[in-house]
Computed example of a mutant assay.
Amino acid sequence: MDWSHFIYFALPSVICWTIGAAMAYRTNKPGQVIGWTVAGLAIFMAFIVGMWMSLERPPLRTMGETRLWYSFFLPVAGIITYIRWRYKWILSFSTVLSFVFICINLFKPEIHNKTLMPALQSPWFAPHVIVYMFAYAMLGAAAIVAVYLLIRSWKRPIDRKVMSLCDNLVYVGTAFLTIGMLFGALWAKEAWGHYWSWDPKETWAAATWLGNLLYIHFRLHRYKLYKVALGLLVFAFVLLQVCWFGVNYLPSAQENSVHVYNME
């Protein structure tokens, strides 16, 4: 299995997710919606597993490989939201976003080799990144809802029920973000001898975590100020983007960070 096979898995997956998203609007049978979405996830996961076996390591080293996981977890976040709260449109949004990341990987393929630097040969490496990608997907879905509500608020009042969706997505995303940070601390202790060193990547990870905690705190104490809360959520998502890939382009990270390996 190599990158040239990706389109043969990605295309059927997107088709299944699209059918599932369309059926959410056209049928009252959630089982069919879930079935199509899960089928797409199974096909996509088959490629991830194949890459894992081919590379003889978790496909988590490069930005392209992390985008692979993000493309997978976006529909996961969408179907979880649909099952729990029956929001139909979230499946369409998650499918479109996943398709965007898939296209980026198709049009900008990266070299995937079996080389894995010693720091990444830790049992904490895979769970740390996988949990983080799921957290990013949940927080990304929350940010999408936030932007949608802000745009819609120009013409009509903000829907309280949809605001509660933002809250729930952020709760889940922040919980997994916290777990991912703990896994990362354990990984850092094993790889570099210390749990936390305020490396540029770690600093922005802390800023992302605090940004989402700020949203949660604001919603608990100023729950009627919807637009301000949504603005904070979008700001937290911007911090997340800097933490994920933007920090790699900062001079401080290129000179001092131990996390620049994903640029190689």
Rank of each mutant, 00 (worst) to 15 (best):
N248F: 05
L220Y: 12
A253Y: 07
Y223A: 13
H194N: 13
P251F: 01
V258L: 11
F235D: 02
L186P: 12
L213Q: 04
N212M: 00
L233H: 06
Y223P: 11
A253W: 00
V238H: 08
A185P: 13
G231I: 06
G180A: 14
L186G: 13
K224I: 08
E255G: 03
L232F: 04
A205Q: 09
L220F: 14
P200F: 02
V131I: 12
L233S: 02
Y249V: 05
L182T: 12
P157E: 10
Y132N: 09
W192Y: 10
A143H: 02
A141V: 15
A185Y: 14
T208I: 02
W154I: 04
V258N: 01
M163G: 09
A206P: 11
Y171N: 15
W192A: 03
I216C: 06
C243W: 08
L225Y: 13
G180H: 02
S164Y: 08
W187Y: 14
G184P: 09
I130M: 15
P157T: 05
Y215K: 06
L150H: 01
A141P: 00
F245N: 08
L149M: 09
A191Y: 06
V145T: 01
H259N: 14
W192T: 03
F134N: 09
A185I: 14
L210W: 06
L213K: 00
I216R: 01
M133G: 02
Y249N: 15
A146M: 01
K189M: 13
M163F: 02
G184L: 03
T203A: 13
N168E: 14
G140C: 11
L232M: 11
K201G: 08
Y195L: 15
P251Q: 07
A253R: 06
Y132D: 00
L239E: 10
A207Q: 05
F218L: 07
W154M: 12
T178G: 13
P200H: 06
H221G: 06
F218W: 09
A236E: 04
F183L: 14
E255L: 03
W209G: 00
F235K: 01
L220M: 14
L169V: 12
Y215R: 04
G246T: 08
A207R: 01
E202H: 09
A175I: 05
A141S: 15
V162H: 00
K227I: 07
G180I: 07
L186Q: 14
E255V: 10
R160D: 10
K161S: 15
D159T: 02
T174I: 05
G173F: 01
L220V: 12
S197H: 00
W196S: 15
L240F: 10
G246E: 10
K227G: 09
G184I: 07
L165W: 13
K227N: 13
N248T: 08
W209E: 03
Y226I: 01
M163I: 03
G211I: 04
G180S: 14
Y148Q: 10
S197C: 06
S153R: 07
L139K: 06
F218C: 00
L150R: 05
F176D: 08
G180N: 03
L232R: 04
G246F: 04
K224W: 11
C166P: 12
L230I: 04
L139D: 05
K227Y: 00
Y136A: 09
A236S: 12
G173L: 07
L250V: 11
W198Q: 02
I216N: 07
L225H: 12
N168Q: 15
D199K: 00
L182V: 15
R219Q: 12
I144P: 10
L169W: 10
Y136G: 00
R219N: 10
N248H: 12
L214C: 11
V228A: 07
L213A: 03
